[in-house]
Design a protein around this nucleic acid. Structure first.
Lengths: 210, 210
DNA sequence: TAGATTGTTAATCGATTAACAATC
DNA sequence: TAGATTGTTAATCGATTAACAATC
């Protein structure tokens, strides 16, 4: 098994390349060079070629890449040729935003269930899905073959939700709560941390003025 | 001017350390070691000390760090000892979520104005702030001394909004639209990209199964 | 003093960039 | 063939880790 370690930064860029390729495809572009992609997404051409080289040879020297083919290849690399099911936990404003997020369906993600611990929200229908009580996570998630959990509850409740998701057999967690979660190493965890992102901005602004 | 380049990863971790220190402070903890912080946020003790060492010496050998003092120091480093004003552009579900996000006020951020291009939303009061038309960005933002813009409009409108924010004199942009924005180099730009984060998860899940 | 923990250096590890031979 | 662009190697750059002297 050739398990050359792939930088996570490469994976993030592949996702961005793919989005750009979809856009170019929609515009009817057939062929594209590493330089074109690089310019479109703001990296260097060498970086684009290096990122792709981890996975194989997809271009034609002297010509470039076929837009459709390359996009299909990247989607496959990213695991997006199959669909994924998502459980949403916490249906406040952020949860609502995610439940209507177009990027989900566009890229093959389906929200299969929504949970909240507020009795007033349980039973509500959101985007055609009935909101269930958080206590039913372990019952429902295996039934609906759901591999990914998105946590949009307050920080104070997030670890408890993560524990429930893990016990329910979830494989990956996308955490929006501003707190460091503890999960077993076999669970894929990513944090989308608004505070951190804002504070990188203010650090850079501060530095600029110092 | 000693401008030792600081890794961005260091800044992101400082933000996380600070949040953890606030939590420990609330619990009444007075003193903390790099090992305690490391365990709390999931990095190595050496990493914690290295990150702090970029900015000075804040601990006492053999003892550790004073929780309150260290947190104050980090907040200052991150530029959070002064307040920051934020303009929110796009008041869909995600914009609504941000407008009520506690992490803003907690860390000294104030939303000063909200914009949308939908005539039905203009005039609405959201969290005590009147929603204004996007065409008034260039007029209002300088008046309200607003340095940071948060973009929560659809991808197709994001570049136009970014251009308006730049012309209005904004210093930094937090972009939630899944698109690569073009802004002048002096503008701080960060992208909070849901698609990218989800797709790193699915890549890792796929790899696990391959 | 003995034990603990910092601050810092040197070694390692990993990612990016530059350059160019291969080849369409 | 001449021009263009890939795939890949080597060089550079940057970040993390390990180790330990300094010192409370």
């Amino acid at each position: 098994m050739k398990t050359l370690k792939i930088p996570e930064a490469t994976i993030m860029r592949l996702s961005v390349y793919s989005r750009y390729l979809s856009e170019m495809d929609r515009k009817g572009i057939i062929t594209i060079s590493s330089g074109d992609i690089a310019e479109g997404v703001g990296v260097s051409p060498a970086q684009v070629r290096k990122d792709l080289a981890y996975f194989g040879e997809f271009g034609i020297r002297g010509v470039g890449y076929n837009v459709k083919d390359l996009n299909r290849t990247i989607l496959k690399i990213l695991g997006l040729s199959e669909g994924w099911n998502i459980a949403l936990v916490g249906i406040g404003n952020l949860g609502l935003a995610l439940s209507t997020y177009r990027g989900f369906k566009d890229r093959g993600f389906t929200i299969t269930c929504i949970f909240d611990n507020n009795p007033e929200k349980v039973g509500m229908i959101v985007n055609g899905i009935e909101v269930m009580h958080i206590d039913r996570i372990e019952e429902i998630i295996p039934q609906r073959k759901t591999q990914i959990g998105a946590i949009t509850v307050p920080a104070s409740a997030a670890q408890d939700v993560a524990d429930k998701l893990v016990r329910a057999g979830i494989k990956a967690i996308l955490n929006f709560a501003p707190v460091v979660l503890n999960v077993p190493p076999e669970i894929e965890l990513r944090n989308v941390d608004l505070s951190v992102n804002l504070e990188v901005l203010t650090f850079n602004l501060g530095g600029r003025m110092a």
